[in-house]
Nucleic acid binder design. Structure first.
Length: 550
RNA sequence: UGACCUGUGGUGUAACUGGCAACACGUCUGACUCUGGAUCAGAAGAGUCCUGGUUCGAGCCCAGGCAGGUCAACCA
C-alpha cells in the first residue's frame, strides 16, 4: 500500500468523521483547447480519488465564456478522457446552470451584496489598486437594491451594449486579496454560446460560476491547481452568502515536465508558429500527440501515479514518463526487425538464390505471442552503425575479422569491406557458419547480436524519429523566445528504412519494438505503399549514452 | 514595499503526526542474456534553505531571516 498524499488524508479524515458518506469530485475543463499530460494528472486525481474511496466524478465543462469555447473541443476532451480509461458519472455544463446562477445573483443583490457598475473596464482596473495599495470604491457602489435589481434585469434583457456595465460583488476594496476587491460577477457579451445559443447576453465569470456549480452538484472536494488558491476566499464567500452546499476547494501543484511546455498559451504558440504540425504532432505533450506517438493510457496513468501530488513547485524528469512507457511496451510490443540505415552484407559462402524461413519469437517477454518466420538469404541489410572499420574500445559489434550473431539466424564473420571510388563503405563481405543456426546447440560465443533484414524481401518504410521538442530542460522558465529553444533534432525522418516483410501489413494501434531501435507505432498518414512509423521512445541504450557524452 | 503558498538526495514523492530520513526514476558496479533491451544482485548519493529557541530528543513545534511561486483579465 502506497503512502498517502495530502488529499487522501483529507478525504479519509472527512469520511472517518462522518462529514461525508461518499465523496464527489469533478473534472472541469474549459472547452477551448486540447487536453495535455498536465490535465492527465488532474483527471487521474479526480477520478482516481473518487474511485479509491467509492465516490463519483462528474465531467463538467466550464463554458462560461462563449468567445473562446467550441463544441469541437468538447468532443476531443471527452474522447481523451475515455481513452485514458475513465468514465464520468454525469456530464454537466456550467451553462446548464445559467438560470440558477442568475437567481443566485439576484439573491445577492437583494442582500445588498452585489451592484451594477457602469464604470468602464479601464476605470474598474484603475480603481482596483495594486497588491500593495488598496483600491477605491466605485461611485456606483451604493446604488439601492431596487435600482440594482432593475439594472441587472435590463442587462439580461439586452438593454445595454457590451461593456456598458457589469455586476459586481460588494466585498472589500481594501482587501489584501485582489480577488475580494468587488470582483466582477457578470459581464455583457452579445455572443452566441455553443449550447445556449443567443438566449443569454450576460455571462457569469469563473468566480461566480465554479463554486456554485460545485455546490449544486454536491461536489465534496473541488480539486484545482495552486493558482486558484487566492480565489478560495471568494469561492467560500459566495457559498456562505448564498447559504448553499459548502463544497471545499483544495489546491495542488500543477505538473511541470522537463524539456517541454504545458501551458495552453505556449502550446498554441507552437502550433501557430509552425514548430509542430498540429495539436496532435507526436512531439506535443497533448494526449492526442502522445497517443499518436504511441504512448498507452496505461503508461500515462502509471506516470500520474508515480509523480504523486503535493503543493510545491516541481519539474518532473521526462525520463520518468519514458520509463513508464518502456515498462509498459516491453511487456506488450511485438518484436520486429527494421534496418534504419541500411548497409549491404553479402554472405559469400551462402548459396545464391537460396532462402530460408527462420522462426523468430514475437515477444520474448510473452511466450503466448508466438513466433513468425522471416526470410534469410545471401544478401542482407544490417545497420550502418553496427559496423566500424576501426572500432574504438568498447565497440562490440561488427568489424573486420570479427564475428557477431545475426538475430535468430547465424553467426557471421566479416571478411572484407567493399568501397566505392571515394572510399565510402558500400558493402560488407562476410561468411556465415551453417552450424550456428539459431536453435542449434552451437557453443560459439559472440560479443553482440545484430538485427538484419533480407535485401530481396525488405519492405521500404518511412520512419519518424522523435526526440524531445526542446533543447533546454525548462523552456517555460526561459527568457528566450520559444522558437529559439526548439531542439533542431526533435524530428528526423528516415525516408527509406528497410523492414521485414511482416510490417507491410502493420496495423494502427499495434505497438512494435523494432529490435535494438525502440518502440514504434504506425502513423495514420501511412498508405498501403508506404507504411509510416512513429518512434514512441528509444530503448535504453548504455552504449549510446556513453558515446554521446563527449 | 503587501497578502498568501512552498522549501527533504540530481528528479519526484515518503517519514506511523517529536524518536537520529524511506521508496521510485536517474547514476555507477557486477551477474545473466541470440536485443549494449529485459531480468537479477549490489553501491554511491540528502542529515531535511539558514540562524536561533523549546525539548532528553526536531525534517516535523516556535521566532526571525533567506529563496522560489502566486495574485492587480468584463479569461479559466
Amino acid at each position: 500500500m502506497s503512502a498517502k498524499n495530502f488529499l487522501e488524508e483529507i478525504i479519509e479524515a472527512d469520511l472517518k468523521s462522518g462529514k461525508y458518506q461518499r465523496i464527489v469530485t469533478r473534472f472541469p475543463p474549459e472547452p477551448n483547447g486540447y487536453l495535455h499530460i498536465g490535465h492527465a494528472k488532474s483527471i487521474h486525481l479526480n477520478f482516481g480519488l473518487a474511485d479509491k474511496y467509492g465516490g463519483i466524478t462528474n465531467l463538467r465543462f466550464d463554458d462560461t465564456n462563449p468567445t473562446t469555447e467550441e463544441t469541437e473541443y468538447v468532443e476531443s476532451i471527452k474522447r481523451d478522457i475515455r481513452w485514458l480509461g475513465y468514465e464520468w458519472e454525469n456530464e454537466f455544463y456550467a451553462s446548464d446552470y445559467f438560470e440558477k446562477l442568475y437567481e443566485f445573483a439576484e439573491r445577492l443583490i437583494r442582500k445588498g451584496l452585489a451592484y451594477v457598475d457602469h464604470s468602464s473596464s479601464e476605470e474598474i482596473a484603475a480603481m482596483k489598486g495594486t497588491p500593495t495599495t488598496p483600491g477605491m470604491e466605485s461611485p456606483y457602489r451604493n446604488r439601492t437594491v431596487e435600482e440594482n435589481l432593475e439594472l441587472f434585469r435590463k442587462m439580461r434583457a439586452g438593454v445595454f451594449p457590451e461593456g456598458a456595465c457589469v455586476l459586481r460583488a460588494k466585498i472589500d476594496m481594501a482587501s489584501p486579496n485582489m480577488h475580494m476587491r468587488d470582483p466582477v460577477m457578470y459581464r455583457i457579451k452579445y455572443e452566441s454560446h455553443h449550447r445556449t445559443g443567443n438566449t443569454w447576453c450576460i455571462y457569469p465569470m469563473y468566480d461566480f460560476a465554479h463554486g456554485q456549480c460545485d455546490s449544486l452538484e454536491g461536489i465534496t472536494h473541488s480539486i484545482c491547481t495552486m493558482e486558484f488558491e487566492v480565489h478560495r476566499p471568494l469561492y467560500e464567500w459566495f457559498i456562505e452568502k448564498l447559504e448553499i452546499f459548502p463544497s471545499r476547494q483544495y489546491e495542488f501543484a500543477r505538473l511541470n515536465l522537463s524539456y517541454t511546455v504545458l501551458s495552453k498559451r505556449k502550446l498554441l504558440q507552437l502550433v501557430q508558429e509552425g514548430h509542430v504540425s498540429g495539436w496532435d504532432d507526436p512531439r506535443m505533450p497533448t494526449l492526442a500527440g502522445l497517443r499518436r506517438r504511441g504512448y498507452t493510457p496505461e503508461a500515462i496513468r502509471e506516470f500520474c501515479e508515480r509523480i504523486g501530488v503535493a503543493r510545491r513547485d516541481n519539474l518532473v524528469d521526462v525520463g520518468l514518463l519514458e520509463f513508464c512507457i518502456r515498462e509498459d511496451l516491453n511487456r506488450r510490443a511485438l518484436r520486429r526487425m527494421v534496418v534504419l540505415s541500411p548497409l549491404k552484407l553479402i554472405l559469400t559462402n551462402y548459396p545464391e538464390g537460396q532462402v530460408e524461413w527462420l522462426p523468430v519469437e514475437n515477444n520474448p517477454e510473452d511466450p503466448a505471442a508466438g513466433t513468425r518466420e522471416i526470410p534469410f538469404s545471401r544478401e542482407l541489410f544490417i545497420e550502418q552503425e553496427d559496423f566500424m572499420e576501426e572500432p574504438p574500445k568498447g565497440f562490440l559489434r561488427l568489424a573486420p575479422g570479427r564475428t557477431v550473431r545475426l538475430k535468430s539466424a547465424y553467426v557471421i564473420r566479416c571478411d572484407d569491406v567493399v568501397k566505392d571510388d571515394r572510399g565510402n563503405i558500400i558493402a560488407i563481405k562476410a561468411s556465415y557458419f551453417p552450424e550456428t543456426r539459431s536453435g542449434s546447440d552451437s557453443t560459439v560465443k559472440v560479443k553482440s547480436t545484430l538485427h538484419w533484414v533480407s535485401a530481396a524481401h525488405a519492405v521500404p518504410v518511412r520512419v519518424m524519429l522523435y526526440d524531445r521538442l526542446f533543447k533546454v530542460e525548462n523552456p517555460a522558465a526561459s527568457e528566450e523566445p520559444l522558437g529559439s529553444l526548439i531542439n533542431p533534432n526533435s524530428l528526423l525522418v528516415v525516408e527509406r528504412a528497410m523492414a521485414e516483410p511482416d510490417l507491410r501489413t502493420a496495423s494502427l494501434g499495434v505497438h512494435y519494438q523494432f529490435l535494438r531501435k525502440g518502440y514504434f507505432v504506425l502513423d495514420p498518414s501511412s498508405t498501403p505503399d508506404l507504411p509510416v512509423f512513429n518512434r514512441t521512445v528509444t530503448l535504453k541504450d548504455h552504449w549510446a549514452a556513453k558515446t554521446s557524452e563527449h
